[in-house]
Simulated scan of single mutants.
Amino acid sequence: MEKTDKISEETITHHVLHKANTRGHANHGWLESYHTFSFANYQNRERMNFGVLRVLNDDRVSQGMGFGKHPHDNMEIISIPLEGDLEHQDSMGNTTIIKEGDIQAMSAGTGIFHSEYNKNKDQLVKFLQIWIYPNKKNVAPRYDQVTLDLKDRHNKLQQILSPNPEDEGVWIHQDAWFHIGKFDNDFFASYELKKPGNGVYAFVLKGDFTIGNIALNERDGLGIWDANLIEIIANSADAEILLMEIPMSI
Rank of each mutant, 00 (worst) to 15 (best):
K136S: 14
L161I: 08
H25G: 10
G101T: 00
G111R: 13
I130S: 05
L148M: 12
N118P: 07
G24H: 11
Y133V: 03
V146K: 13
G24N: 14
G84M: 04
L31M: 13
L128M: 12
I132Q: 10
M48Y: 13
V52N: 14
I78F: 02
H25T: 13
E87S: 06
G109N: 04
I97P: 11
H88D: 01
A40H: 01
Q158D: 02
G101I: 07
L148E: 12
I77C: 03
L124P: 00
T36M: 13
A26V: 12
I78Q: 02
G84H: 03
R60W: 00
R47P: 09
H25W: 01
I98S: 07
D122H: 11
H35S: 03
D59V: 08
D90F: 06
E87C: 00
H28R: 04
L56C: 07
K136T: 15
I80C: 01
Y143E: 11
G68C: 00
M75Q: 13
Q145W: 09
R54T: 12
I78C: 00
N44R: 07
E83W: 02
T36E: 01
Q43R: 04
R45F: 12
E100L: 08
F39V: 10
G101D: 12
R60E: 13
F113N: 14
H72M: 01
T36L: 07
I130G: 03
V52E: 10
G68Y: 02
D122T: 15
D149H: 06
K126T: 13
H25E: 15
N49L: 05
Y42P: 14
F113E: 15
D73S: 15
K121I: 07
E83A: 10
G24P: 15
D102E: 09
K69A: 06
N49T: 11
D122I: 02
G29S: 11
S62D: 13
I160E: 03
M92A: 05
A140W: 09
G51S: 12
P134H: 04
Q129L: 03
F67A: 08
M106V: 05
T22K: 15
E76V: 03
K137H: 06
F39Y: 11
E100N: 09
L161E: 04
R142C: 07
K156N: 14
E100C: 04
K126G: 06
Q43M: 08
K156L: 12
G93A: 01
L86G: 04
G66Q: 10
K126S: 10
N44E: 13
V52L: 13
I97D: 08
E116G: 00
H88A: 07
L161T: 09
N49K: 11
G111Q: 12
G109A: 08
H28Y: 10
Y143A: 00
Q123Y: 00
Q43S: 11
S62G: 09
N41C: 01
I78T: 07
H72C: 10
K156T: 10
H154N: 11
D122G: 03
M48I: 15
Q63S: 09
N57E: 08
P81D: 15
A26N: 10
F37K: 03
I97M: 10
K99D: 06
R153E: 14
Q43D: 14
G66M: 08
E76Y: 05
G84Q: 06
L128E: 09
M75G: 03
L124T: 10
Q158V: 13
